[in-house]
């Protein structure tokens, strides 16, 4: 750590510390969220806008803004340009506060059923 007052610039990182802004800074260093899986194709929908909350980052608010209608986790991560691991932690925070709803995809490994396959087939033919 060094201070360089002569040039009116504050250096509070150095090479060894690496880049200061890392994606996980905004998650407070957390890499896991316990409340939900947030599958790539889980759908997120905002149910309530956040009240002023010191614990929420701009990225939390951006996620809330992005999901007035259901949006998949993959699309949300892409839209906010955040890594999946980060978006999952942020979504966990929002879920805990009751600000979003999550619909995880069906985890039934016997899938897919014939009706679903037929619907996909029809959709492809209609392309």
């Amino acid at each position: 750590m060094q201070w360089d007052n002569d040039r009116h610039t504050e250096y509070w990182t150095d090479e060894a510390a690496g880049p200061l802004v890392r994606p996980y800074t905004m998650t407070g260093g957390r890499t896991r969220t316990s409340s939900a899986d947030f599958d790539l194709v889980a759908y997120i929908m905002t149910v309530e806008q956040a009240l002023p909350d010191v614990d929420l980052h701009p990225e939390h608010l951006a996620a809330l803004d992005a999901c007035p209608r259901p949006l998949s986790v993959a699309e949300l991560a892409s839209r906010l340009d955040l890594p999946l691991g980060v978006i999952r932690v942020l979504l966990g925070d929002l879920l805990e506060r009751g600000l979003i709803m999550v619909r995880e995809p069906t985890k039934d490994l016997k899938l897919p059923d014939e009706r679903l396959l037929e619907a996909v087939m029809n959709g492809l033919h209609a392309l």
């Binding site: 929908m45 149910v47 709803m101 999550v102 069906t106």
Partner: peptide, 13 residues
């Protein structure tokens, strides 16, 4: 399944 149950949400997503 739905982490928070809300019938409206199910039909939307």
């Amino acid at each position: 399944d739905s982490t928070h149950s809300d019938p409206g949400h199910r039909t939307l997503a």
